[in-house]
Simulated assay, not measured.
Amino acid sequence: MERGRSGGVWRGMLPLLGLHVANEYYRLGRKPPVTAGLILANTLIYLRPGPLHRILPTVDQVCFNPHLILKYGDMRRFFLSAFYHMGESHLVYNMMSLLWKGIQLETSMGSVEFASMVAALLGLSQGITLLLSKGLLLLFDYETAYYHQFAVGFSGVLFAMKVVLNARSDDEYSYVHGMIIPTRHAAWAELILIQLFVPGVSFLGHLGGILAGLAYLQLRGSFLGSDPLALLIRNFVGAVSWPLRFVRSLFSFQRPRISGRGRVGRNLPGRVVAAAVWRCPVCTYDNSAWVDVCEMCSTVRQDHHHDFSRTHPSDRSGDLSLEELRRRRLERFER
């Protein structure tokens, strides 16, 4: 979350973000749709292409400001401010972080559970930031520093996601900007380091994100049963996709299958033929082991398991001409 006001400017970093996202998704077997949707939504809101420029509110209209939210009940600032960014570098940094965290969490949790978690973390992080700013005003008279501060960005949710991801990790230590930090303290270390290196960011917004992640883990651990928000999302998706599934079922058809007890083909070297069939030496048709005459060309089976006295000269495959073999095949298919 970053303080201030700005508009969307494209300086060439977005193509690099697009290439990185495409490369990561190309390597994945299962493509996490919610993570991709969040990245796309944040990017489109920043670029505001075509009709979106007229539809979407400006960044000045949605900046997170505790004073305006509490005074006027402006819920648009409360929810939409997380999807706006101050500049291209702000957007790209947050989306790269979202890509890394989102892929891991959505792959392990499932898309519905992940979407439910993101919605909960968004509300918790914004709400805790609002309460912190109001509390600082009442207790310490910090009015200008936090209560009237304007901020935008998805980083509050990202800090909350980092807390959840670290809680699910089996690693004891993590790298934070090149430093080895115990995993359970990684989010706190990143909070301090970012504030030192980039003083213009919203410390309260990032702190609210960490506390939101801790609150989510506590609430999720104490709640027994299915997540009600995830259940609601799952039912909504099922209701929306039902017409599509119904139309698909109307026009679906099964591929016609060729039935038969054998195959036609050459006897390739190294090819293993099941013991339950025998291959005709003339037409290479695979016949059932229960029959002694080829079902394709009527050639009598000849091997050491059968009596050779039953083979007559007129039935031997070597005596059949090409015309006779072709005629027998046609008769076989016309049965």
Rank of each mutant, 00 (worst) to 15 (best):
W290A: 10
S169A: 06
A145I: 12
P269E: 07
K134Q: 11
T129K: 13
Y84N: 04
N235E: 14
W290P: 00
M296C: 12
S111A: 11
G37S: 04
V300Y: 07
L68H: 08
G18K: 00
A41F: 14
R310C: 09
T284G: 02
V272I: 15
D171V: 00
G156A: 15
G8F: 02
N94M: 13
S111K: 03
S321G: 15
S317N: 07
R248A: 14
L196F: 15
C280W: 11
F333N: 09
L211S: 00
V291R: 01
A212R: 00
D141N: 14
M1I: 05
V201W: 10
S226W: 14
L136R: 08
N65Q: 13
A289L: 09
H53M: 03
K71G: 04
A189T: 08
L231K: 13
H185L: 14
T284L: 12
L124T: 01
A167L: 03
L191Q: 02
S6D: 06
L158H: 11
L219G: 01
F253T: 13
L196R: 13
G127I: 05
G205D: 04
G265S: 01
L322E: 15
Q104L: 06
E24D: 09
L80P: 05
R54Q: 08
G225V: 09
T129H: 11
Y146S: 01
F159A: 06
R255M: 15
L122S: 05
L244N: 03
N23L: 14
L105Q: 01
L219C: 11
H305P: 04
L193P: 03
I39W: 10
R5D: 10
R76E: 09
L224P: 02
L224W: 08
Q61S: 12
D319P: 10
